[in-house]
Design a binder for these strands. Sequence first.
DNA 1: ACTATTTATTACCCGTGGGTAATATACGGG
DNA 2: CCCGTATATTACCCACGGGTAATAAATAGT
Lengths: 265, 265
Amino acid sequence: MDDGQIPSSSQSPWLPFESRRRARDEKREAVLRTAVALFLEQGYHGATLNEVARRLNITKPALYNYFRGKDEILYECWSIGNELVDDCIAETSVSTGSGLSKLRKLIVRYAELMTEDYGKSLVRFDLRDLSEDNRKIVQTAKRRIDRAFRDYIAQGVEDGSVKPCDAKLAAFAIAGSLNWIGHWFQPGGEMTGRAVAEEFAIRLTEGIATTATRKTAQKAAVPAAEKADKPPRNGNAPREDESEHHTRAAARAAGQSKRARGRLR
Amino acid sequence: MDDGQIPSSSQSPWLPFESRRRARDEKREAVLRTAVALFLEQGYHGATLNEVARRLNITKPALYNYFRGKDEILYECWSIGNELVDDCIAETSVSTGSGLSKLRKLIVRYAELMTEDYGKSLVRFDLRDLSEDNRKIVQTAKRRIDRAFRDYIAQGVEDGSVKPCDAKLAAFAIAGSLNWIGHWFQPGGEMTGRAVAEEFAIRLTEGIATTATRKTAQKAAVPAAEKADKPPRNGNAPREDESEHHTRAAARAAGQSKRARGRLR
DNA sequence: ACTATTTATTACCCGTGGGTAATATACGGG
DNA sequence: CCCGTATATTACCCACGGGTAATAAATAGT
């Protein structure tokens, strides 16, 4: 079935027996990358710290140099995902355009996140496995995400780009579809994450949008704004907006001083 | 915090110390009712068999008279939920009407299921906690459910009641919204399960429907069928169709002879 | 009433895996 | 070159909870 000799998978900073002198934070992140993948693969309870360590060519106790325990690793995985979502929200909220326009942008970004490991961790991990404190943080953040969807919808209703509807339920419906992506999507399938995201942005808004979605027929019903809403559905353009996907996440990658960092001796 | 003396919760056939002479199957089901509630409340791994037993006024080993082990209990919970879904599908598939009409019916039924314990078990439990064999059964059944959604959509596209679209993605989007209900809904909130279900049936189909949804304007575009599609949105009528929610489930309640029944000595 | 069968209880086992203590090795600075 | 610190390893602990064996209590049949 399985025996030793990991094929030096992905890229572990601990090459079997050579120079293991990388920066601390790089190792920390490597642990998280491995952990989130394993947690998704086997489930939090099915995955063992021994296996996480094994995949990194180290042993379990070494992990405790970087984390207080298993549940903290889980929390940190979730936390990274949350920072990515925050970036999505921040990006979309500063963008100009109607409520519908912002909603669509958020859907695309969020959907694509759900096709990646850290995004999935937001919806596949069980809050009850976290410590009391961390659980509260997560719950608060979840409400923030929900609020973003709801706000854009309400905003759209006001500016006329979205049909009048119950913002709360509409947000649940949309977020549900998107979150579910994290359960079924796996890379290597017929569609790329980006493609799924764009398709969902259309599908999930065409029910509540006042304007026609597909291409023509911008029937002149929108009172204000609605500028660069959507370049009319280019098949596979080289994503024009790779500018800076990481606002807060980039900060974390560089600075990274806050947040517990392993056993405090 | 908590101490002994369970307040004889719900209705346990094992009243603390009196007549415990119920039929075997009734006890079996009582175990499942308690187990599914506890699993949802604390998560499968967080819940212990000791606690399940405690809530039933018995002790852990007694459970092994009815089930082979914890994972079998999990499977049986899931299995009941699956039978309920099968009923939904069976009901809707024999109903007359357009593809859209069937789709809406299925959505309503399925959504309401997601507000109940056994329905939630379909989407909140982790397949990886099941035995190899049972996991295969579940996966097969899941595909069947997905197929039902997809078929109705495809059917609707053909008969003109649904706009042309990718049936697979549309089904994922709809099922995602519905499955997510099982994660956020809890009874006692502002809306009843039924209300949520009806609202979702509208919301999730108005994007892909060719006919106007709300009330008037049946613009004459549907080529065939489309009979008793929907009584125009009665606020809280006493659900006209309580006829027989349980086809297969009813059979199980009465006959119930198949399926492993505890330790075979 | 006596016995066979079912169903429950008490007492126990033990594998698993998170977590820790003691210790060794590598690294960087004076 | 030596020492302090950071980082890793080996060896271990032990709580938890699923599962079992032995046994007792209840039930049904004749």
